[in-house]
Design a protein around this nucleic acid. Structure first.
Lengths: 337, 337
DNA sequence: TTGTAGGCGTTATCAA
DNA sequence: TTGATAACGCCTACAA
């Protein structure tokens, strides 16, 4: 392994001068700079990150905690984040959790072990934050969920208004003339996101002079194809005359639509479906899935910008809401009475 | 920050004894062990990775280089790899490349900067390996592509026989009575994988007394929904009476099927489609996509096992072929003449 | 079984 | 503008 000492010896300068050149300091003579750069190049020298980070006690890494491994929206966001971080000299430390796991516990662990300079949470449950977020002392951004009520100085958020978005989805079904509406979503006890969207559903029902009969209308599932498939099967079994379903993620919706087809039910002819997230998948599926689109690019870019703002510019925590958008696909049919 | 010295002082033992306990050595008295563990627990002490790795000069990290960010198969494999690595004390360093980029160049960079103890290539082009792989000196496994002909002592491979698999896909279309068969795949100049599958197609054509008319039958695209969509449009335009298409990935196939529908063509009624990869997506799509399934779990588990075999057991490079399987979906229709 | 001391490769402080 | 040197936190001979 070639170290800074080798470069020093070979170039005839001292390690400190080499270090200065390496770190683009300006208190170095052009001669020294040129000579040292030549030697560095010739030896293919790259500084040892461990030594550097040990000394500087910062790791130049950013932790990303993803809740839900099959969550396509998060996959899309991660992809965008990667593209942005690639251009900087930071590295990402990814950590994937099950959708109901405790992300703050994981964050604490990550901070201790990897010393990231900041954290991005893709999905998160305020309960966990309330309980133990005090232990995390680096700047963080909660993405897709709101954190304004939490009031931590080092926790920003870039979120979609899940209540309004959930309401929007169900409103669309009412608008199409549906009365018998089912909901397929996450575990309401464990998933804050699902709970918010569900609140939106309740608002919509209420606005239409109705109330949600939990037992019959709501079925829970995980955010994966398989689970959506099974969940939809359970839903139609307990609610046989359902004509429309709001499914809380596109991935689940695809599983759900497949389940319906396998039972001989067509979407939208027999049952209408509205998804959530607005991933690319939804628009390429057949039928195109009507969905509530979260702007994943904006979510991604703002969260990274805000994190860097907090880290480098020492800015305060901010809380932003990113607008969603209803995308009408081919999966909803107007119900004539 | 709490360091090993703090633990030493607090427990009344020396740093070396603490270090021994931390590293589960057995040359330590039960008393010392117990006391030290108690203090470690009380202070929430976690060793500083940078210091540890600097000293040991190994990073306990494994590099994963993924060629093609929209490649669902790779996403599935990565997921499996993550599950396996999670249980060990290694960390993954992910690196995503464009599908036509030079992965070996990236590998060289990664080795210099992060000093991984081993590398996993998800997809790769033998050309790049021939040109510069000599610069990579850690154990590597090329996943999904063969590397047996390359003959590097530190490069194993766990692959699917792309030639046979490509042939299998086209054979299925011939078997269904199709004559006018198109192919939608990657850039044959840049994508080795595509070239292999294409060779398989040629074999199949030949076996059926036919030859591929490149100009008319082959269209290139990237392995994404969007690109598959556009590619299929170009293909039907230059080959209007095509009745069946082999698409070299499920993701592309979904884009392609969507393109056909948007032109008013149904799958399989008007045009049959066979995909490739056998991702979950294919079986939930509508229609279910007939596809050549690569066993991603096996691909993932074997590649990790082989890498650890090389790293820890100093085993020699091995080259394995993982069997593929044709999955008949709903996207192929028998052609009656 | 335990402790002391040296060093991993780098940066930063201080003096020259 | 440059160089010697002391850290950073940990591991590991080697000594006791």
């Amino acid at each position: 392994m070639v170290t800074i000492k080798d470069i020093a010896r070979e170039s005839g300068y001292s390690v400190s001068t080499v270090s200065r050149v390496l770190n683009r300091r300006n208190d170095v003579s052009p001669d020294a700079k040129k000579k040292i750069e030549e030697v560095v190049e010739r030896f293919h020298f790259t500084p040892n990150n461990n030594a550097k980070q040990l000394k500087q006690n910062n790791s130049k890494s950013i932790g990303v905690i993803v809740k839900g491994i099959s969550n396509m929206l998060f996959a899309n966001i991660v992809e965008e984040i990667q593209k942005m971080i690639e251009k900087t000299d930071y590295t990402l430390v990814m950590s994937y959790l099950d959708e109901d796991d405790d992300e703050v516990e994981q964050a604490t662990l990550l901070c201790r072990e990897r010393k990231p300079i900041g954290l991005l949470f893709l999905g998160g449950n305020p309960e966990f934050f309330k309980k133990e977020f005090a232990g995390v002392d680096v700047p963080c951004v909660l993405v897709t969920n709101r954190a304004d009520k939490l009031g931590y100085a080092n926790l920003s958020s870039v979120a979609t208004d899940d209540i309004a978005a959930g309401r929007c989805a169900v409103d669309a079904l009412f608008a199409a003339g549906h009365e018998k509406i089912g909901i397929l979503g996450g575990n309401l006890e464990k998933s804050y996101t699902s709970r918010q969207r569900f609140l939106g559903c309740q608002e919509s029902f209420l606005a239409h002079g109705r109330e949600i009969e939990m037992e019959k209308c709501y079925e829970k599932a995980h955010f994966s194809f398989e689970s959506g498939y099974r969940g939809m099967n359970r839903l139609v079994e307990k609610f046989p005359d359902v004509t429309a379903v709001f499914v809380m993620s596109d991935v689940m919706a695809i599983g759900a639509i497949r389940a319906l087809r396998d039972r001989g039910l067509l979407v939208p002819e027999n049952i209408s479906v509205v998804g959530f997230d607005g991933t690319t998948l939804a628009e390429y599926y057949n039928p195109k899935i009507a969905t509530v689109k979260q702007q994943y690019q904006t979510l991604a870019s703002r969260s990274v910008e805000i994190l860097f703002g907090q880290i480098e510019l020492k800015q305060d925590a901010v809380h932003e809401l990113v607008p969603f958008e209803f995308v009408s696909g081919e999966s909803v049919r107007a119900q004539e009475e």
